[in-house]
């Protein structure tokens, strides 16, 4: 009692081991993503003398080297950079599109506009993601931008539906009516009332969806329809390693473990946020 809200929040977060672990992992990945060119111990030029050096043998190449002698640690750092960038921007894009569509749809329900928008999400969800991505990426040249767009294509209907149902629940509620009576404009109602109630539901989805997109991006690159060399992604490092699973299986193990740690960190944050922000779950925990 008597503490300021910030200290209380920090106390609450650190009491939650999984959330703390998640934040540490994600913060580490973010730092690597931002500062990859500064942190990377080597450059990316090949060195035929150091072909497939095993990890933990030499101090200057802690994670070994790949088939043409490039430092794997350096490559993984740049891979994280690509992953974080693409996953983050695709989730933001999907949430933006989804929110706009959801709000428009929710406020025009029932009506033709709402029906059309919802059938559109049906069509979108009727496509299995991998098939959609395969078609789209043969249609466009796969680079970071087009991959982020393709990834967000698979995600926006989820947000649109969530926002729509929340808007529909809220729009006839007393507090919206009260706000309208007090003279609040449409924009103010969207941002201040509807939006504020959306956030607790959306916030835990961000880390969970970013985790999903990290996996999906690496998957596309692994199937060689995503990021193509010389650009680096964790997925195409693994695609490269796939050629050596018989002789050097450690090579494909490393990027995979890194990916799992990243995804676990994001999932920890998402799951903990869900329990922290959902009052009904909180009650049950105490009870």
């Amino acid at each position: 009692m008597g503490q300021n809200p910030l200290t209380r929040l920090v106390g609450k977060i650190s009491a939650n081991i999984l959330l703390t672990a998640g934040i540490i992992i994600v913060a580490g990945c973010l730092a690597i993503a931002i500062a990859a060119p500064l942190l990377a111990p080597h450059d990316l030029s090949p060195n035929p003398a150091l072909r497939l050096l095993k990890p933990f043998r030499e101090a200057s190449f802690p994670l070994g080297t790949d088939a043409i002698g490039r430092d794997i640690l350096t490559r993984l750092m740049y891979g994280i950079r690509t992953s974080v960038l693409i996953a983050f921007s695709s989730v933001v894009l999907a949430a933006l599109i989804g929110t706009v569509v959801g709000v428009l749809s929710g406020f025009s329900n029932p009506g033709l506009f709402d029906t059309i928008l919802m059938r559109l999400t049906d069509v979108q969800m009727g496509f299995p993601f991998v098939v959609l991505a395969m078609i789209a990426l043969t249609l466009f040249n796969p680079d970071k931008t087009s991959i982020a767009i393709v990834l967000s294509l698979s995600l926006w209907p989820v947000y649109a539906r969530m926002v729509r149902s929340s808007v529909m629940l809220q729009k006839d509620s007393d507090y919206i009516a009260a706000a309208r009576l007090m003279g609040a404009g449409r924009w103010r109602i969207y941002t201040r009332y509807v939006g504020r109630n959306l956030l607790p539901a959306m916030l835990p989805l961000f880390p969970l969806d970013i985790a999903g997109m990290v996996i999906n991006e690496s998957l596309l690159s692994y199937m060689s329809i995503g990021i193509k060399p010389p650009e680096i992604s964790i997925g195409n490092i693994m695609a490269d390693a796939r050629g050596y699973i018989a002789s050097d299986s450690w090579y494909i193990l490393l990027p995979g473990v890194l990916l799992v740690i990243m995804v676990l960190g994001l999932n920890f944050i998402g799951d903990s946020l869900q329990t922290l922000l959902d009052p009904s779950l909180r009650q049950k925990r105490r009870g």
Partner: peptide
């Protein structure tokens, strides 16, 4: 459960290939 949920499918598949197929 959380651990297996966080593992990408294609990586698990490749690991299975290494463990039960190649090795």
């Amino acid at each position: 459960a959380v651990l297996f949920q966080s593992m990408p499918n294609y990586w698990v598949s490749t690991m299975l290939v290494i463990l039960f197929g190649v090795r």
